[in-house]
Amino acid sequence: MDRSPFPHHGPLRPEQVTGRESLAVDLAQRIADRRLTALVGPRRFGKTSLLKRVAADLAAVGPQPVWIDLYQLTSMADFAAAVDRGLASVVGPVRRALDSIAATVALRIGVLGVELTRSPKYRPDPVLSLRNLLGVLTSAAQRHDLFVVFDEFSGVANIQGGAGVLRTELQHHFQSLGIVFAGSEPSTMRALFSEQTQPFFAQADLVEIGPLSDAAVGHIVEDGFETTQRHTGGITSRIVAFAAGHPQRAMQLADALWRRVEPGETADMPAWEAALAEVRTNVNAASERIFSLLPTGQQKTLRAIAAGGSIYGAAASALELPPGSAQDAAEKLIGNGIVRRAQERLEVIDPLLADWLCRRFPI
């Protein structure tokens, strides 16, 4: 049985990442040039997948990656443990260098998470541990060509003093260690690098990862069907239009259609309608949950945007949405990564959430 060419659960393997070639080249060059870069974009837009591909491309010619996942940090101990896990995942000569350097400061890489769960009397100081771990990383960068990816970097905003410790330990090594910060909370990421009160103010270039082009989505869909001896029968345009450049949703829709087409056969409208119905059913509960957690003003604003991209038109009037409230709510929705500005209009980033809103609340 063929495996679907449209994986959409979790990050892709490096060789599966397509449609981002120019951005991949740009990021690789930034890392090689030691230019601090913050990659910003909505969730499920492929930031992690893209950076995994960049890491694989660079590792093939020399620079070795260190991947540190900062998702859902709640304490300095979480921060230190995340850095420890990142260093522990490194293999080969770089790992041997890390272990050798760590031994000089009485550290054992890979066990900090356990040590931090001990009773207070025997528990290591998480701030000191974090500083030591970062020192091990920067020392290893003097021996090997390294770069580090801080994934879900917006999690640092939850840790008082966390960004300050990171800046203090890294600031004298920006020329020897490539660094990329990636985050899915646009307002938090921009604040971390754009507000003067933040330790990393003006320290990194903000690079946006946007939707895939229609051409890129079309190519991915057509190629996936053709390589598994199937045909789209013109349904590609339906997927392209519905997905609106959203990478994960495009793959999800394509996968649902692909599973309804046998090898040698061609997709048709009934297959597309069945695929779309299945995907809609799968996302209904999550969409309801997202919507229910929003304040009333943001709910109304989101409905107005889904209905036509404007917060001042007929939809807003029907919802009794005052312009001032709508503007404030729209900014919060943008900051939370639910809505984005697209030229002269606003749009819901997730096309399936927008579709659910229109089906659930027809105006």
Score class of each variant (00 low, 15 high):
residue 277 A to K: 11
residue 260 R to L: 14
residue 190 R to K: 08
residue 25 V to P: 07
residue 132 N to G: 13
residue 268 D to P: 02
residue 133 L to I: 07
residue 103 A to V: 01
residue 361 F to V: 09
residue 12 L to N: 11
residue 46 G to T: 09
residue 280 R to K: 11
residue 44 R to M: 13
residue 271 A to P: 02
residue 9 H to D: 13
residue 272 W to F: 08
residue 285 A to Y: 14
residue 224 G to D: 00
residue 255 D to F: 08
residue 331 E to A: 12
residue 336 N to L: 09
residue 325 S to H: 14
residue 285 A to K: 14
residue 222 E to I: 10
residue 27 L to D: 04
residue 330 A to T: 09
residue 24 A to P: 04
residue 160 Q to E: 15
residue 172 H to G: 15
residue 299 Q to A: 10
residue 198 Q to F: 03
residue 27 L to A: 02
residue 202 A to K: 14
residue 226 E to G: 00
residue 136 V to D: 02
residue 119 S to D: 15
residue 129 S to N: 04
residue 1 M to N: 13
residue 151 D to I: 11
residue 327 Q to L: 14
residue 265 E to T: 08
residue 280 R to L: 08
residue 17 V to N: 12
residue 31 I to G: 03
residue 80 A to E: 06
residue 201 F to W: 15
residue 222 E to T: 05
residue 282 N to R: 15
residue 223 D to C: 03
residue 232 T to A: 05
residue 289 R to I: 08
residue 304 A to C: 13
residue 300 K to D: 03
residue 207 V to W: 03
residue 335 G to F: 06
residue 264 G to Y: 06
residue 264 G to S: 12
residue 71 Y to R: 10
residue 197 T to Q: 09
residue 37 T to R: 12
residue 271 A to K: 06
residue 243 A to M: 07
residue 318 A to V: 10
residue 181 F to D: 04
residue 159 I to D: 08
residue 194 S to M: 11
residue 55 A to W: 04
residue 156 V to E: 12
residue 355 D to V: 06
residue 288 E to L: 11
residue 216 A to E: 04
residue 220 I to E: 09
residue 71 Y to I: 13
residue 35 R to W: 07
residue 292 S to Y: 01
residue 100 S to A: 13
residue 47 K to I: 01
residue 298 Q to W: 00
residue 19 G to I: 11
residue 323 P to A: 15
residue 1 M to G: 13
residue 135 G to H: 10
residue 188 T to H: 00
residue 90 V to C: 02
residue 174 F to D: 02
residue 274 A to D: 12
residue 342 A to L: 14
residue 25 V to S: 14
residue 187 S to D: 14
residue 17 V to I: 13
residue 350 D to T: 09
residue 283 V to Q: 11
residue 125 D to R: 01
residue 325 S to Q: 15
residue 73 L to F: 10
residue 227 T to K: 14
residue 92 G to K: 08
residue 238 R to N: 11
residue 133 L to G: 06
residue 58 L to Q: 08
residue 31 I to F: 03
residue 56 A to H: 15
residue 18 T to N: 02
residue 228 T to N: 12
residue 101 I to Q: 01
residue 54 V to A: 03
residue 25 V to M: 09
residue 37 T to Q: 05
residue 104 T to K: 13
residue 313 G to W: 10
residue 231 H to W: 07
residue 151 D to Q: 10
residue 94 V to L: 13
residue 290 I to K: 07
residue 230 R to E: 08
residue 143 R to F: 01
residue 329 A to R: 03
residue 244 A to F: 03
